[in-house]
Design a protein around this nucleic acid. Structure first.
Length: 478
RNA sequence: CGGGGUGUAGCGCAGUUGGUAGCGCACCGCGUUUGGGACGCGGGGGCCCGCGGUUCGAGUCCGCGCACCCCGACCA
């Protein structure tokens, strides 16, 4: 599997990315164009991500449910922007059981419509609100150009759908979930995302406002890593989601939706990876630790494996892989587990048996500098500390990289230079026209309008020089 | 859907003026190895993308399909 050198990132970033995904056994191409198989190693990472996200959803009062994959086509015509946004990329079932269907069924690209339909049946009174439901699901969007994890015809995600009595509550929920995503990204994945609001042209089809977390990849391109939409009353009106308030007056609900997908796996790969392959954050890695035993003969093997067993027992609360294969050499194993991004490697050989030590090698610091000896005595706390250090170092490194590649742009010439290889933070008048022109001329798109800008700030639009009240990030994006 | 490219073993490729298919890696067996990608010997594996031509004979030449990849327009 791991027999040839990876293409270096600097030589061809997307080639590097593809090779990493395929060679680490995260995923494989499926027989249908644009579809992928998530293999056990990739799925294990996704399961750890799911666990952390799901925990946060539950902590903020949400419950899980499952809605159907097939949606009547007519549902998509009920919300004007939604149909415009999604109809080009719908997959539609027209035959069932050998019969042409009376009404074609859409394979869900997202579930606002069918969930909106159900909510209209379920919600009668202000006492029924808020409704806070999430589902873990797969969805299908017929994309033209696909990339493993980043854009596939079918992908896995969670989609939260909530209904509220007031506009304020819906807005609070929208921002709460944006914060949940940012917290997950930063503290679990060590991906230092930036929060903000999307421009009109970049927002979700049918939303009043879309917020996103934006991550910077190793080539400085941006990746939208999660979105949270305030849908206002658009879907409530389209699907007739109404409740009686305390004054016995019929009111439309205010709804939100929010999602994070397997695309985030791509974000982790491209945020942390290096020329030797993946580097996975300890808090999410399928294996946090790999143990490589080293011995020359049966006699040594006996002594070494005894020590390995002792170590393994001490580390039973960690996700540990013991690589006890005899058909490959230790050096081969080092390369393979480095490629696969295991944060910490423990080597145990005859010398360690003698000294009561364990050699620990950090994945995030290559070579000698990342190596240290641990004592076999009381090993678990030492390992925990190392993993915490690695997690923190990964976040710090990614944050430094991000900050080193975001620059304020004062003139358009400067701007063009910056977005060649980084993000520009610029004043923007808010017009779709400037946005479009900039995209045509530089390929940079608006990423998000940061939430934490100074009140009453003013400047000149980077493109048209008109008065601008907000700053926004521009960059090339995946 | 435009522009370019490629289809030969699991993967990466070679295959001369047309003569019945090979290399490296991977895989299987045996032996020696094992603290940074080990080696020797032996072995298994093919509808040469599909269909139709030309020819005594096609992986190779000619049509027509199909698939995939890369570059653009569209996107979580």
């Amino acid at each position: 599997m791991a027999d040839e050198k990876l293409t270096p990132r600097s030589e061809n970033y997307s080639e590097w990315y593809n090779q990493v995904v395929l060679r680490t056994d995260m995923a494989d191409y499926a027989p249908v164009r644009g579809c992928m198989v998530v293999k056990p190693y990739g799925w294990a990472l996704w399961e750890n991500m799911q666990k952390e996200l799901d925990r946060r959803f539950k902590e903020t009062g949400h419950v899980n449910a499952a809605f159907p994959m097939l949606i009547p086509q007519s549902f998509f015509e009920k919300e004007k922007d939604h149909v415009e946004g999604f109809s080009p990329e719908l997959a539609v079932v027209t035959i069932g059981g050998g019969q042409v269907l009376e009404e074609p069924l859409v394979i869900r690209p997202t579930s606002e419509t069918v969930i909106g339909h159900m909510y209209s049946k379920w919600i009668k009174s202000y006492r029924d609100l808020p409704v806070l439901i999430n589902q873990w699901a797969n969805v299908v969007r017929w994309e033209m150009r696909t990339r493993l994890f980043l854009r596939t015809l079918e992908f896995y995600w969670q989609e939260g759908h909530t209904a509220h009595a007031t506009a304020e509550e819906a807005q609070e929920e929208t921002l709460r979930m944006l914060d949940v995503y940012a917290d997950f990204a930063i503290n679990e994945a060590a991906v230092p995302v930036l929060r903000g609001r999307k421009s009109e042209s970049e927002k979700f089809a049918g939303a009043v406002n879309t917020y996103s977390i934006e991550a910077m990849m190793g080539d400085t391109k941006a990746l939208q890593a999660g979105t949270s939409h305030n849908l206002g009353q658009n879907f409530a009106k389209a699907f007739d989601i109404k409740y009686l308030d305390q004054n016995n007056t019929l009111q439309y609900c205010w709804t939100t939706s929010w999602g994070v997908s397997t695309r985030f796996i791509g974000a982790i790969i491209m945020t942390h990876g290096d020329d030797n392959g993946l580097i996975l954050p300890p808090r999410l890695a399928p294996y946090q630790i790999v143990i490589v035993p080293i011995y020359k003969n049966d006699e040594e093997q006996g002594r070494v494996m005894e020590a390995v067993e002792n170590v393994r027992k001490q580390l039973k609360n960690f996700r540990v892989k013991l690589d006890d294969r005899t058909e490959v050499t230790p050096g081969y194993k080092y390369h393979e587990w480095e490629l696969r991004g295991v944060p910490l490697r423990l080597e145990i050989g005859p010398k360690d048996v003698e000294k009561g030590s364990v050699m620990a090698a950090r994945r995030d610091i290559p070579g000698r500098d990342g190596k240290s000896f641990l004592s076999q005595e009381n090993l678990a706390p030492q390992v925990q500390e190392l993993l915490d250090t690695i997690q923190a170092a990964m976040l710090q490194k990614a944050t430094n990289f991000r900050d080193a590649n975001i620059h304020p742009a004062d003139t358009y010439d400067e701007f063009k230079q910056i977005v060649e290889n980084g993000w520009a933070e610029s004043w923007w008048c808010g017009s779709a026209e400037c946005e479009k022109k900039i995209k045509e001329e530089t390929k940079a798109t608006t990423r998000c309008i940061p939430l934490n800008q100074e009140k009453d700030g003013h400047g000149k639009c980077i493109y048209c020089q008109a008065d601008a009240a907000q700053k926004i990030y521009f960059s090339k994006a995946y």
